[in-house]
């Protein structure tokens, strides 16, 4: 019942969003496209952070891998976009499974260190592998097909892709896998002694999260028509992580609001200050200390099970 309501509300929202190009404002369409892409990016990360309690500091790596793969398939090999995007997802899935294999083996601390380290490795490769990525000059002139060339058509395409992808992620979050991730976060020992293969659950979740970040990156490469190594840099990972935390860890829709809020804030402050990272840091610190459940928490959303309370002890038996 509640789920049906949510779905109906979202369908209405999507229809409403499809009307944005009618406003006639290219800027608005452009901004809305960017927000959509980051909504997908943040929602994919939320699967790890919100449901699994695994803080990835290198999620941008998969955004960049998807972006470069898509750009290379489109531009270098002339693959049509409806094959290039899925192709980019496959590439990202394979690489996230490999990287994830190392990241989920040990504790959550190792997970955080390793995601940051591998994120920086992807950045270094994008930076130095000039022949393929263009290095720090960037991958320029991404071949966007004719039918996606106008801002409006690309916006509508992105809306469709993001809506479908978010729907898939919703199913994943509410699937046995998603529920088991929450159980592992809360009490890994117990989950293991129920017969759950905890590492494998985490690895598959990691791979799914990476794959959808890759899809967001693929869209982004067409949106920007270029891609730079910076898209894998840890600051990019930080930004999307802050979107998730600001929106509300563990609430499915919170991070979408977080993405919206952060991008709008970025636009607003672009002229006022060049110290965006410091602003991000302050937002993050204020969120952590004063409303740990983020924007979603302000509206009474239930925090994810397994997050330790103010004084509660997490069971470690």
């Amino acid at each position: 019942m509640k789920a049906n309501m949510q779905i109906a509300l979202l369908a209405a929202l999507c229809l409403g969003l499809a009307l944005v190009p009618l406003s006639g404002s290219t800027y608005l369409v452009y901004l809305a496209t960017q927000i959509l892409i980051f909504i997908l990016f943040a929602t994919s990360l939320n699967l790890l952070v919100g449901y699994g309690g695994l803080i990835s500091f290198g999620h941008a790596a998969f955004f960049a891998i998807g972006g470069y793969s898509n750009a290379i398939l489109l531009t270098t090999y002339g693959v049509p976009v409806l094959l290039a995007l899925p192709g980019a997802m496959v590439v990202t899935a394979i690489l996230s499974a490999i990287i994830g294999f190392f990241c989920v083996r040990l504790t959550a601390y190792y997970f955080s260190m390793l995601t940051l380290a591998f994120g920086q490795l992807v950045w270094a490769v994008a930076f130095k592998w000039r022949a393929v990525t263009g290095g720090d000059d960037g991958f320029l002139r991404v071949a966007v097909p004719e039918w996606l060339a106008t801002p409006s058509s690309f916006y509508l395409f992105s809306l469709l892709v993001v809506a479908l992808a978010v729907a898939v992620l919703w199913v994943v979050a509410h699937s046995p896998l998603g529920r088991t991730m929450m159980a592992i976060r809360e009490n890994e020992t117990r989950a293991g002694f129920l017969g759950v293969n905890t590492r494998l659950v985490q690895l598959i979740t990691f791979t799914i999260a990476g794959t959808f970040a890759g899809l967001a990156g693929g869209l982004f490469s067409m949106f920007n028509r270029s891609l730079f190594p910076n898209s894998a840099w840890w600051l990019q990972s930080a930004e999307v992580l802050i979107m998730v935390v600001l929106g509300g860890i563990g609430s499915f829709f919170g991070p979408m609001v977080g993405a919206l809020a952060l991008i709008l804030l970025n636009r607003l402050t672009l002229q006022l200050t060049e110290y965006w990272p410091a602003l991000l840091a302050i937002i993050l610190i204020v969120t952590l200390f004063f409303f740990p459940n983020g924007i979603a928490g302000l509206f009474g959303s239930r925090p994810a099970p397994g997050l330790r309370d103010e004084r509660g002890e997490k069971s470690d038996a």
């Binding site: 199913v171 994943v172 509410h174 699937s175 046995p176 896998l177 998603g178 529920r179 088991t180 989950a191 129920l194 017969g195 759950v196 293969n197 494998l200 659950v201 598959i204 979740t205 799914i208």
Partner: peptide, 15 residues
């Protein structure tokens, strides 16, 4: 879920 080895099932909501 664990008994039925369904913990890896991500393609449909929890029954």
């Amino acid at each position: 879920v664990a008994r039925e080895r369904e913990e890896l099932c991500f393609w449909r909501p929890l029954r």
